[in-house]
């Protein structure tokens, strides 16, 4: 088992490298470099530099070196010092800006994942066992709708509905009066009042997808001979279904972390922009629009790494759940 985990971690390295390269490409994509941006800003405030000064600054920032050296320096900064570069828009190191936002992103993603599981498991089982019943048709319809409505449209709609019919604004994570306060019980209650909107919005697509997958897998498993064996033993029907086919159809549930997580993080990015949540999304968009590339690239890098870690966890859980994977 330990060997398996080590092997998985080892396999992650090239993917991680790929993700960092893509992030770096995004940082480098806009025309001009970091210094051009700084100089432009300086020029705005009437500070000018001589060509000589500019060349020295270039050297200082390492911008005169070839691209791969800049990449290595960037990565080395992150790995050795946790230095993600400098946000020129905020005039602060990226690392100062990023962690709080990433924490909120992670928490909401995790809550959404729990929501996805909690909802799709019972509905999926019900749908598969009672195929073609009215409940199954409703679940299927809900599934299709959930998949078809893009996150941000769902968020906008929820916003509109709650504003129009409940007179309540659902943006943000806290009501305005709590934002600046320290964490307290009323503030926590207020958080719960707000957090369900992003969780539902982000989780819907994943829930719909998982219901469909679980229904399809379980339908397959229900026809397997081992289910008949279990019935022939004389087990009651619900025990048969829960102990055998459901146990095996659970695999995609665990492996779902691997692909639901990127989806959730994707979803939260855009949903957060619509709902104005203090997560990475709005900051990322702002950084991108302002071409504050180190900040933007770091967010993209961290989001990629986050999904990779999620995939690793799902692989490990899967191996725990299914002995066949463990022994191969």
């Amino acid at each position: 088992m330990l060997g398996y985990i080590i092997q998985r971690v080892f396999l992650m390295v090239p993917t991680m490298l790929g993700i960092s390269i893509i992030s770096f490409i995004i940082i480098q994509l806009p025309p001009g470099d970091y210094l051009t941006s700084v100089l432009a800003a300086m020029a705005d405030s009437d500070v000018t530099f001589t060509a000589d000064q500019i060349a020295r600054m270039r050297e200082n920032y390492g911008l005169d070196e070839p691209m791969y050296m800049q990449y290595i320096q960037w990565i080395w900064g992150i790995v050795s010092r946790g230095d993600f570069g400098y946000s020129f828009e905020w005039n602060r190191p990226v690392s100062e800006l990023i962690w709080e936002r990433m924490g909120a992103t992670l928490s909401i993603s995790f809550l959404s994942l729990l929501f996805v599981w909690a909802v799709s498991l019972p509905i999926g089982i019900y749908s598969a066992v009672r195929r073609h019943s009215i409940g199954d048709h409703i679940a299927t319809l809900f599934g299709f709708l959930g998949l078809a409505i893009p996150n941000f449209i769902l968020a906008l709609t929820l916003m509109y509905v709650s504003f129009r019919y409940f007179g309540q604004s659902v943006g943000g994570l806290y009501s305005p009066e709590f934002v600046e306060q320290a964490m307290s019980w009323p503030k926590f209650v207020d958080l719960l009042k707000h957090v369900w909107v992003p969780v539902v919005v982000i989780g819907t697509a994943g829930t719909a997808a998982l219901i469909r997958i679980l229904r399809a897998n379980l339908t397959d498993e229900l026809n397997k001979p081992y289910v008949l064996t279990a019935r022939a033993k004389g087990l009651p029907e619900h025990t048969v279904i829960l102990r055998y086919p459901v146990r095996i159809a659970l695999n995609p549930f665990v492996s779902a972390i691997g692909w639901v997580l990127p989806q959730l993080i994707s979803g939260i990015t855009i949903t957060a922009i619509v709902l104005n949540l203090p997560t990475a999304g709005p900051l990322l968009l702002r950084a991108l629009v302002a071409q504050d590339m180190y900040l933007a690239g770091s967010f993209i890098l961290l989001m990629g790494v986050l999904t990779l870690v999620g995939m690793l966890l799902s692989d490990i859980l899967l191996a725990l759940l299914d002995p066949r994977i463990r022994f191969h």
């Binding site: 081992y226 008949l228 064996t229 279990a230 019935r231 022939a232 146990r247 095996i248 066949r324």
Partner: peptide
Amino acid sequence: RKIRGRRIALIFQEPMSSLSPVH
């Protein structure tokens, strides 16, 4: 259910798929 397994038992053709892979 009290008869299945206890008074009448069944063996299938494909022993691989007739036994649960995860138990």
